[in-house]
Amino acid sequence: MAQIELVDVVKEYSVWHRAGRVRRQRKLVRAVDRISLSVAEGELCGYIGPNGAGKSTTVKMLTGIIVPTSGRIRVAGKDPQRQRIELARRIGVVFGQRTQLWWDLPLADSFDLLRHVYRVPHDRHRANVNAFIDLLDLGPFMQTPVRQLSLGQRMRGDLTAALLHDPEILYLDEPTIGLDVVSKARVREFLASVNRDRGVTVLLTTHDLTDVERLCTRLVVIDHGRLIHDGTVAEIKSRFGDHRTVVVDLEEAGPPLEVAGAEVVGVDGPRQWLRFDRQATTAAAVVAAVAEQAALRDIAIEEPDIEDVVRRIYSGDAASTPDLRDDPSRA
């Protein structure tokens, strides 16, 4: 059964533009443009796109914070617009940049307050808190005021806070943003175990494609509010990543090489990058062709990683958006 279902969902905003000194003009902006999507129970689905693509808007609609302009949304069979409060008991949300926790109180107090807010039976709450203390190693800072926690510690606290009431669905909006490598790995590990052991359906919005590669079975890509890909990570790689790049170091710098079936995509002194389609030719053929034209010192072959793939999706298939490749994880 689909836990999350969107049918033809549209969200439009009015934006006021300054036209002249005083006059303002209204402009309608489509943040989400007819998205249809269905996420099954127990899935761990990545939801990615460049800044301003409409990711957060989608998550806000799914939680009932904002209502769609048109289209139909069902989460756990409920309408988030009408049944916001009922639904709130069954979902967990983590906004990476904003904490849910009580800023000036110890972490333990936040958890206790949430037990009452969500009316979790005492024993169940105790068991959950203990389990998360073990999983996320919260013990050392349970009595520390949240404002004194490091970003990584706070995120671990926030993840716990979002899961204490045993939600069936978990939305994560940039859960690894700003975390160091160790904390990121820990959060990923935890999310995988929550999905696996508790059967929680997870929708993960992220900028960090390593998150997606490590965690998600399924990947949904949106851009300009439109859904441009929906499939497995492997599928997306083969669909958009069916190319390799040969990097050659020549004895001396020269003009871009001319190799049939390959295209020079970069030149840096004696180093050149040649991209080719695996369907059309092979790495061996490209290297041989290069060797005929120039003296080779060294070669390397680059596999496409998911970031390349996604960058190509944004700039290639969604050809209208070459300027939106502002992926901070790459910068």
Binding site: K60, T63, G64, I65, R84, I85, E86, A88, R89, I91, V93, F95, R98, Q100, V117, Y118
Partner: peptide, 14 residues
């Protein structure tokens, strides 16, 4: 302005 009003809306209370 801070975006922390949303937190209130994801909880099962008024």
């Amino acid at each position: 302005k801070q975006g922390t009003f949303d937190r209130v809306l994801v909880r099962p209370m008024s």
